[in-house]
Design a protein around this nucleic acid. Sequence first.
RNA 1: GUCCCUGUAGUUCAAUGGAUAGAACAGCAGUUUCCUAAACUGCUGAUCCGGGUUCGAUUCCCGGCGGGGAUACCA
Length: 605
Amino acid sequence: MKIEELLIPSVVAAVKDLYGTAIEEKQVQLQKTRPEFEGHLTLVVFPFLRISRKKPEETAQEIGTWLAANEPAVDKFNVIKGFLNLCIAPDFWVKILEHINADEHYGIQAASPDAPLVMIEYSSPNTNKPLHLGHIRNNLLGWAISNIIAANGNRIVRTNIVNDRGIHICKSMLAWLKWGNNATPETTGKKGDHLIGDYYVAFDKHYREEVKSLTTQYMAEGMTAEEATDKAKENAPLIREAHEMLVKWENNDPEIRTLWEKMNNWVYDGFNETYKALGVAFDKIYYESQTYLVGKKEVEKGLEDGLFVRHEDGSVWADLKQEGLDEKLLLRKDGTSVYMTQDIGTAKLRFQDYPIDKMIYVVGNEQDYHFKVLSILLDKLGFKWGKDLVHFSYGMVELPNGKMKSREGTVVDADDLIAEMISTARQTSEELGKFQDMTNEEKDNIARTVGLGALKYFLLKVDAKKNMMFNPQESIDFNGNTGPFIQYTYARIRSVLRKAAEENIGIPATLPAGLTVSDKEQELIQHLAEFKGIVQQAGTEYSPSTIANYCYDLVKEYNQFYHDYSILRESNQSNKQLRLMLSANIAKVIRTGMNLLGIEVPERM
RNA sequence: GUCCCUGUAGUUCAAUGGAUAGAACAGCAGUUUCCUAAACUGCUGAUCCGGGUUCGAUUCCCGGCGGGGAUACCA
């Protein structure tokens, strides 16, 4: 029950009755009244002036009079210019609160067995280095979006495509063989993904040295700097060895394959730890090593069908000039597959495995072009779902000195950041004296919940499509518009409710009649009633930030109103019950909203 | 060059085409006999520039300027 929905038909009826013209519901603009004016909801009457052929004030006056007479929910009204401010009758607020209170899962819709099936791909790591801050944003967005889509009544499948093959993996393997001395996660005590990442870095370091000395050599032989660099990059012994290894891998060389499996498993163990710490999971994981051949086959079929062309050197291309794009490579001259080929294969397998109604890819906006092309190619290949795939394109996380670049060592490591957030939360709790009378387990849980809450909220409150700034020096706040602020308010409400329960004060399903609801409480009830609409909006726009900002606004408002209010010491029993019910439902909505974002709320902190 | 995204207080972020553009952080000044002070109150401070559409533009359109990205036989 949303108050707006209640009133819109009445406004339509009013216009019809007064001016004899039928209007559509979507033409009715009802918004929350600004706090400086009296009223709850405001009707913007400017759009009706053409129909009424009267001045704004006059039109507003007429509609207001009609509503006050014919709509029981409207108590009284006032007019300021073209704005008609409506006051809702007090007992309506009580009814709305009781309605919210009756629904334990307010705002969440369960999926029926025949509900649309939505598959969400996110994370998609490479197995040659550990996860960084950019991956965290991806994972949190993917998790939150899938929760939100599920909350809107859809069935979901969370999926991950692991880029587990290719030249980058060979680089790590080669470096490990050369300089690794058989190091393992066990012998070094390092997480597997970090161990592999170290060898990837080592490869790059040695490779650059080789390129540098080769370049000088070629230049001494009379090449220009540019020519020399290009040739050096191609001819450096290390990169040639890596390419040889890739060929061996593709030819199923048993030695290489065994090594590859061993090292990838180390990485997966490492990733799983990070995923667990972040609280994300997957229903089905695809591996590029298992899908790229499927993609290759599709491309070859497309070639036979005349959809693609083969160039003289043997490479295969798609001509997308008709679609306003360029030519796109699908198979290299040596017949090996590229990123696009693999994505075609993965898509095919997924639609074979599941009756997917909608496919959503959570991938950074640097790949907007890639997904535009993928959509067209899938469509050309005759997959009817190709056209409708959704690329949920999110912005990059930027650092004060620019983009994150692994080569320049400017990445913010995911595991480091998580550990740092948790230890900061622990330290803050200790300084504030929150940890008295707590077991070590409780302390651990609170530090983890609050630290991750701060991190997650920080990344999710920003509009996903925008680039965002992260300053490691300033680190993430625990005060203000933050996760811990919301968590703290939740914990305080829960504390009040615990004390009420100890005193055997229950919350009845219906509140006593004749209750006076103060203006502030009316506003809070109105705010609470918006939650359902917010979840819907977040679902259609795929925007976790909508929910994050809603939760903050609600909490901020609650803190302001109830800072000087007493709930348990209130002498009037009816008021006490109203305040308890209101608080309990604010806690419920906060918990629901934060959980949709993948953020836990603690019972105490 | 072409294409895509983006430009709001000192900083990080908000604002279905609506009233006086909201917060937070930082700065300054306050609030604790009282259900958790990770709180609350007050002050200072912003829509890149120029046109257009509209009763009304931060929002939509066009043109500049600034930032990011794509246009790889990397993934």
